[in-house]
Amino acid sequence: MAAEGEQQLQTNGHAKPAEESTNSIQSKELRRKKRKKFLVYVALFTLFQIAVILFSSFYIMKVRTPIFHVRSATFDHVEYKNAENASFDIRMNVELGVKNTNFGPYKYRNSTVYFFYNDVSIGEAFVSQGKAGFKSTKKCNLLVNLSSKDVLPKDSQLRNDLSSGTLILTSKSKLEGKVELIFVIKKKKSTEMNCTITIGLADKVVQDIDCD
């Protein structure tokens, strides 16, 4: 009996250290897996942060030039003659647009829109200061009188255009202002208008508006 007890004691003595060794290995493996998961989460979070910063830098925080253009036009009065002393007198209602594609408002100062026929000034309209909200278009309506009084009365091009019933005008202007981002960053930005307006004299309608 004494021999059996001694043998059992020896067996249990060897089994206990073996069991503790197995538990230790499993514990270390578990801690290693947890550290690995933690490092993966940290790496993913870091990549996410970098992606957000890059997206903000290249898209949200990028300042784009607003678009200043003629949207449409109608006429209160159209009078012209294509005789030897060709001339025209037009009163036009113009709708302008300031398209702002930035993630912040665009505040612009007073400006003037000039209208030309064959590079000769025929009229102008005043644009008061305003603000185009972020990702939106600010519209404004102007009344402008267009007259050929400064165009040579015997201009053959003018006679030909009036005879054809089509008058091509251009509008030019420059708008200066600032884009405001996240209520703190303000960056100066100017935009220029350069539009071609084709008028059908007989029907008194705008046939086409093309802006650069």
Rank of each mutant, 00 (worst) to 15 (best):
V63F: 01
L54G: 05
R31H: 10
A86P: 03
A73C: 10
F58C: 02
F48Q: 07
V63E: 00
L47E: 07
H69Q: 11
Y41D: 10
T74H: 10
V78R: 02
A43H: 07
T74G: 10
V70L: 09
L39F: 14
L44P: 08
K33L: 14
V40Y: 14
K62Y: 02
V78T: 05
V70W: 06
A51M: 08
D76A: 06
K33I: 14
F88D: 01
Y59W: 08
E79G: 02
S87W: 02
I50T: 11
H69V: 12
Y80T: 00
K37L: 14
L47K: 05
F58H: 04
R64N: 08
F75G: 02
V52M: 14
R32C: 09
I60V: 05
S87H: 04
F88R: 00
T46W: 10
T74E: 13
F48L: 12
F45W: 12
F68R: 03
S87G: 06
K34F: 09
T65C: 04
V52G: 09
L47P: 07
K62L: 02
Q49G: 14
F45E: 11
T65I: 11
L47A: 15
L39A: 13
L47G: 09
V70Q: 06
K81Q: 11
S72F: 05
L47V: 14
A43P: 05
T65A: 07
F58G: 01
A51I: 07
F55Y: 12
I67L: 13
K33G: 12
H77S: 02
S72I: 04
L54T: 07
A51L: 09
T74L: 09
L39H: 12
L54N: 06
A83D: 15
P66Q: 04
Q49M: 15
K37Y: 15
L44C: 14
S57T: 03
H69L: 11
K37G: 11
K62D: 01
Y41V: 12
D76M: 06
A51V: 07
F38T: 15
K36G: 12
Q49T: 10
F45Y: 11
V78W: 02
I60M: 00
Y80E: 00
F55R: 05
I53V: 13
T65V: 12
S56V: 01
R71M: 13
H77Y: 03
D76Y: 06
T46P: 08
H69K: 12
I53D: 03
K33M: 13
T46H: 10
V63D: 01
T74D: 14
R35T: 09
F75D: 02
V40C: 14
F58D: 01
R64A: 07
Q49D: 11
F58L: 04
A86F: 00
F68L: 06
V42W: 12
H77I: 00
K36D: 13
A86E: 01
L39D: 09
I53K: 06
Y59A: 03
K37Q: 12
F45C: 15
D76V: 04
K37P: 07
S57C: 04
N82D: 12
I60H: 00
F45D: 13
N82R: 07
A86M: 02
A43M: 10
I50W: 09
Y41P: 04
Y41G: 09
L54W: 05
F75M: 03
I67N: 13
F48R: 05
K81Y: 08
T74N: 12
K37A: 10
N82S: 15
L44V: 15
E84K: 11
R64E: 08
V70H: 06
A73S: 11
I53R: 04
A86K: 01
A73K: 06
I60A: 00
